[in-house]
Design a protein around this nucleic acid. Structure first.
Length: 266
DNA sequence: ATGGTGGATTATCCA
């Protein structure tokens, strides 16, 4: 089974790229972030004609997530249990930052869009840390129940875990994505049993998944590694290969993120 | 001097 994660920065603006990507790489399951669409705004005809089922979760113009699968899609959940909400919820509305489903032979995959954090002293920064802690707790609970559970936590984590995951640490001094609390929160998810299954075969420095649209960051190779596929032990041991599709960042109409692709022999 | 891109939605917010 070939799974992938991609911050698409508007699914409606890039549906043609998604279809071409799925076909080009023979992808079975694709997790998307920043779909920037409510489910009812999406025209899924072409995806369905290509043999894919789709589940989408979105409430506003920036932080929607989706799962696309041609190997089954069931038990779809639109929120992680006990996930803290932003803004502090009075209406019952929750943010569309997580969407999980069962695909293939019992693999649970979560498409995750971790909060950006904005600034170190912004309320969203604390929200980001709480969100990651809730993800860790839920991930730990899942493995405490069944250590052999096949779980993949994939998506845009908005954290660069190592210094080598950004093009210039001095540039990021005092900024989010590289602060120690964010990195500790990311490591806690890993330590709960969810390993980065890509880094081993694609070590840095200079291996990125995101390049800002501004300042010619992509041609200048000034990027960040912030998109990850984290796998439970049974997923880790099933990995047969992986790659970051840097080509997808090229040309007119590219997302600012590249897809991350992982092959599994479950 | 400096958000110099890009998307969604409409002059502003978000990343």
């Amino acid at each position: 089974m070939r799974i992938a994660t991609w911050n698409i920065n508007s699914l409606r603006a890039r549906m043609d790229r998604v279809l071409a990507f799925l076909e080009r790489h023979d992808v079975d399951v694709l997790a998307l972030q920043e779909t920037k669409a409510k489910p009812q705004q999406l025209d899924l005809t072409a995806l369905q004609e290509a043999g894919y089922e789709v589940a989408a979760h979105g409430l506003n113009q920036w932080n929607g997530v989706a799962l696309i699968s041609r190997v089954g899609l069931s038990d779809v959940r639109t929120e992680l249990p006990a996930l803290p909400l932003w803004p502090e919820d009075e209406t019952g509305v929750v943010e569309a930052r997580a969407l999980g489903g069962l695909v293939g032979d019992g693999l649970r995959i979560w498409s995750l869009y971790i909060p950006n954090g904005r600034e170190l002293d912004h309320p969203h920064y604390d929200y980001k840390l709480r969100w990651l802690e809730a993800l860790r707790a839920e991930g730990a609970r899942e493995l405490a129940e069944d250590l052999s559970a096949k779980v993949a936590l994939v998506g845009d984590f908005n954290v660069a875990p190592l210094d080598e995951d950004v093009w210039d640490m001095e540039f990021f001094d005092g900024k989010t994505h590289v602060s120690e609390p964010e990195r500790a929160a990311f490591r806690a998810v890993v330590d709960a049993g969810y390993a980065d299954v890509v880094r081993g075969d694609h070590p840095g420095p200079g291996v990125y998944t995101y390049w800002d649209y501004q300042q010619l960051r992509f041609p200048k190779r000034q990027g960040m590694r912030i998109d990850f596929v984290l796998g439970s032990p049974s997923v880790q041991s099933a990995v047969t290969g992986s790659f970051i599709d840097r080509e997808e960042r090229k040309g007119k109409g590219a997302s600012d993120h590249a897809p991350v692709v992982v092959d599994l022999d479950l």
